[in-house]
């Protein structure tokens, strides 16, 4: 639930309001947000038609491979990317690390992803996102988790999927779980909605609003495991508003070509003929990992509370 924080703005001009923050997310719809680690990749993404880039030091596949603690990226790298492209630039903060978020906001980042891909900094609390002027996106595996993040002030949700695997199965699981819960909500009476809210530890008002709308009250993107154009189109047909592609582009054989193809597939997600056309001759996709070989500890999607 977006809560307005009183600021010193003049009466005429109000920034950082719920409408201004969630409006930003609405402008990303139907688009592809790409992970990039340097200026060159950011420019390839922009040239391919990405609606935003996510600036980070290592793509999830490398975070997975390297191990160790993954943190916010170097501000100088983020600044360089901000200066190099005209599209919005996002960056990741660790779960609960509100100081990383303060720093990212001060850099002029357009949106912060409080991300399970980085090593969590707090095992109880997420960032109090209502306090920030910059919009936040958060990952969710199910409806309860999505609504808890909205209660903290997120204005955009994405599936967690399983980042850095190139395997779509988890993103599909999360998207279907959220869709199924919303359909259940729609058939519940008031008492059952109360019970649902209690069970999933989410505010009743948000549960009620979601039931009434028949969808999440904010923009909902797919993320985690998208590697080929058909993956993007699959998530769009499952009702997602757009896609994040992390390792899938720059861990593939021909990133520029693949990036363009995924952008086209996200727009024309319902047109199999065009999907066939854009899917042809893209070179090697990222190799990918089967989820069942990952131990629970290796699953980023288990992070977040």
């Amino acid at each position: 639930m977006c809560v307005e924080i009183t600021k010193n703005d003049s009466d005429q001009i109000k920034s950082g309001t719920c409408q201004v923050k969630s409006g930003f997310a609405q402008m990303l719809k139907g688009g592809v947000i790409m992970d990039v680690v340097n200026v060159e990749q950011a420019q390839i993404a922009e040239e391919a038609g990405a609606c935003a880039v996510m600036a980070l030091e290592r793509v999830p596949a490398d975070i997975r491979k390297d191990g160790g603690v993954a943190r916010m990226s170097d501000p100088s790298m983020i600044k360089k990317i901000i200066n190099a492209v005209s599209i919005p630039v996002m960056a990741k903060a660790r779960i609960g690390h509100f100081v990383e978020a303060q720093i990212l906001q001060s850099l002029g980042v357009d949106c912060i992803d409080e991300s399970e891909v980085l090593t969590p900094a707090d095992e109880v609390h997420h960032i109090n996102k209502s306090k920030f002027d910059v919009p936040f996106v958060c990952g969710a595996c199910n409806l309860g988790e999505a609504l808890r993040r909205l209660a903290e002030g997120a204005v955009m949700i994405r599936t967690k999927g399983e980042a850095g695997t190139g395997n779509i199965i988890e993103a599909v699981r999360h998207a279907r779980a959220i869709n199924a819960s919303i359909r259940q909500l729609q058939s519940m009476d008031e008492n059952e909605l109360f019970a649902f809210a209690k069970e999933c530890r989410a505010p009743y008002e948000l549960v009620q609003q979601t039931a009434k709308l028949g969808r999440l009250p904010v923009v909902n993107f797919a993320a985690g495991g998208i590697a080929i154009p058909a993956d993007a189109a699959l998530m769009m047909q499952l009702g997602m508003d757009g896609v994040f592609v992390g390792s899938g582009i720059f861990k593939s054989g021909d990133p520029a070509k693949r990036a363009k193809a995924i952008v086209q597939a996200t727009t024309h997600f319902n047109d199999a003929k065009l999907l066939a056309e854009v899917s042809a001759e893209l070179g090697d996709p990222m190799v990918g990992i089967n989820i069942d070989v990952l131990t629970n500890q290796d699953r980023f999607s288990q992070r977040g509370w």
Binding site: K14, V20, S86, Q105, V109, D110, V134
Partner: peptide, 15 residues
Amino acid sequence: NRNYFGRQINSFETM
């Protein structure tokens, strides 16, 4: 002029 007001934190509403 594209993005005249700057970045998202400079986005606003007004009457």
